[in-house]
Design a protein around this nucleic acid. Structure first.
Lengths: 126, 126
DNA sequence: ACTGTATATAATAATAACTACTATTATTTT
DNA sequence: AAAATAATAGTAGTTATTATTATATACAGT
């Protein structure tokens, strides 16, 4: 699998993810793509999501309910999880990448990055 | 299940987690407890881990390889996940709680806390 | 200590999320 | 257009975790 060939299924997944502001699971994506490609396979969705994540065109967020979620907006941003309604929202805030340096200070290995999400109450729930 | 009754299996799990500095999976815990309780059931391990997490006596860390890991040391500290060997290590570093304020700045809801882990290569893998 | 009742257990079956396999189809190369 | 190669649909298999159930254990009331 050296050369990556075009596929309309993959294009549809990319398109769907770039249009939604939700952070859907693989299964939700599958259900949605099925409306335009009724016999797309769930395996195809997973394989392409992995490809897209690897190519850096999609972000994988591992939700705390066991299933991964995907985000087509790849500019650096942070997520907020509402403790009450369990919604995932985007946070607009300045970068906190300096915490990598803080972590690296006395660590024998090499810290390359971090994953952070914030939690609390969203506007409607507070 | 209103009243929680004593069980030596749960005590053994708690004991094991407070003694190890690893961040074992449920299966690793199962294997270890089996040495003293040869016919403990994996289901018992899972049920008690969930109980202990709920009671706040154990932390659950969701590792990036699909399986959750557990930590018997509940004081605040940060974790490092090795991208290569998938080990989870403790990081000794100064607090980064100020990032909550950064996140709160332009957010209409209320940020109450954050979850952060760092990743990269550990000392042996780098 | 004895009994009754509720909780915990071991063993096993079931589920959920994801990955692997294979024959066929679509895309790209020549 | 034919050959080469990668992607797909459909299905089977894995892995981590949860549910079920009959039996065992803990503990409160006597």
């Amino acid at each position: 699998m050296a050369v990556i060939k075009y596929s309309r299924q993959r294009e549809a997944i990319k398109e769907y993810l770039s249009q939604t502001k939700e952070h859907p699971t693989a299964d939700t994506i599958y259900m949605n793509i099925r409306e335009s490609y009724p016999n797309i396979s769930l395996g195809t969705v997973y394989r392409n999501l992995n490809l897209l994540v690897e190519m850096g065109e999609v972000l994988r967020i591992n939700g705390m309910d066991g299933s991964d979620r995907y985000d087509g907006h790849t500019q650096q941003h942070y997520h907020f999880l509402c403790n009450k309604c369990h919604k995932i929202l985007d946070l607009e805030m300045e970068s906190i990448d300096h915490i990598n340096d803080t972590a690296n200070k006395d660590f024998p290995g090499k810290v390359e990055g971090h994953v952070t999400y914030f939690y609390g109450k969203c506007n409607e729930c507070k």
